[in-house]
Write a protein that binds this DNA or RNA. Structure first.
Lengths: 194, 194
DNA sequence: CTGGTTCTTGACTGGGCGGTCCATAACCAG
DNA sequence: CTGGTTATGGACCGCCCAGTCAAGAACCAG
């Protein structure tokens, strides 16, 4: 009945996310988004409502994607839970060391949020909890397996892994190389060996 | 001979740094700086040359200040080197959990830098190396003390501590509380107990 | 083919931005 | 007191930005 859209929302959000990941929210202009997505300003505005809303959409996608990726890495495979975490950390070290000028939208949102009630802040906070939950689940399996002491504080360890991965992300962004980042990951994993 | 300045550069840079720490570089306007410093635009421009240059000045101060603080914490006191690191980490957990809407200029600069050749990036990279060096020095003392195994990789451990502290900063910013952050710090310190 | 609805395009706008100009103030050597 | 020099304050400017408007295009039910 009405004129159909020429674009797919998911693709647009994804392209926009690319741009935001490189430039950040404040430094990205609507024209950047127009160019990256191929849509006109008005179409962007009709479909999403403005720059900030589009960023929020991209942020949510990024959060889901990130959670999905970590779930995938930690919940599947033949290896033991602890070995899966180990493998994941080592892969992250490689990924972060070649991340170039990209920072995850999560981190961007966290840094660019103005206060704690900001939607950007609430989404990232939820994202952190979600990630921690995934780690916690895997660690709990390890504990039941006997690979962790029975009195290990699983949720604290989970948050510890979230912290170290965020730190590794920033280090990678600042030019710390693959070897050094891998060494950091291995140091971080020594928390298991005692 | 000429009209004297009404301000002290150090104070101006410090006030500007406050604003930048809350808003970031891109989101801070010249008017924000005028209001925060009390100077007129022209005076700011005469003395520093523009927003970005002023940010760089504030960033350098922040870097020196941060390095000084860590040095202070790690190189002085009766406690053993490892205990000093432990105390420092626990203090950071408290500091980061109440940091409110501030993020260190180092992290701001890292995230807002556009590419690796950006001055912002080079300064933060140097800052990270500097911090790592301070940790490494302290860890080396511990090793000589016999508190660390003789084959401990001191420089890797140092980078590990830089990573975990950056991660803790972000977690604190996103609302993770004092107790949880302290638990993360304690987990991180378990790297010594094996 | 027509009408109704939604999408698209490009021109437009008002505000805010970083930065500049200029007239004047403050200072001090002489 | 005067002249030279630098600092100051406020008006000013051109640009760019997010967002808007209006006219037309695409679609499909009937």
């Amino acid at each position: 009945m009405a004129r159909p859209r020429k674009f797919v929302e998911r693709d647009v959000v994804s392209s926009a996310g690319e741009v935001f990941a490189v430039n950040g929210l404040a430094a990205t202009t609507l024209d950047d988004l127009v160019q990256a997505t191929g849509l006109g300003k008005q179409s962007l505005y009709n479909a999403f409502g403005g720059k900030r809303e589009l960023f929020l959409r991209a942020l949510s996608e990024d959060r889901e994607e990130a959670a999905r990726a970590v779930s995938e890495a930690l919940e599947h495979g033949d290896a033991s839970p602890l070995e899966r975490i180990r493998g994941h950390m080592l892969r992250l070290a490689i990924e972060f060391s070649r991340s170039g000028s990209r920072v995850s939208l999560q981190t961007r949102a966290l840094v660019e949020s103005t206060d704690e009630s900001d939607q950007l802040a609430t989404v990232t906070k939820a994202g952190i909890e979600e990630l921690a939950g995934i780690y916690a689940h895997c660690l709990e399996l390890a504990r039941e397996n006997g690979d962790l002491p029975a009195d290990a504080n699983v949720s604290s360890l989970a948050m510890y892994f979230v912290a170290i991965t965020r730190g590794m992300e920033l280090l990678g962004r600042s030019g710390v190389g693959r070897g050094a980042l891998t060494a950091v990951a291995l140091d971080a994993l020594r928390v298991f060996h005692n």
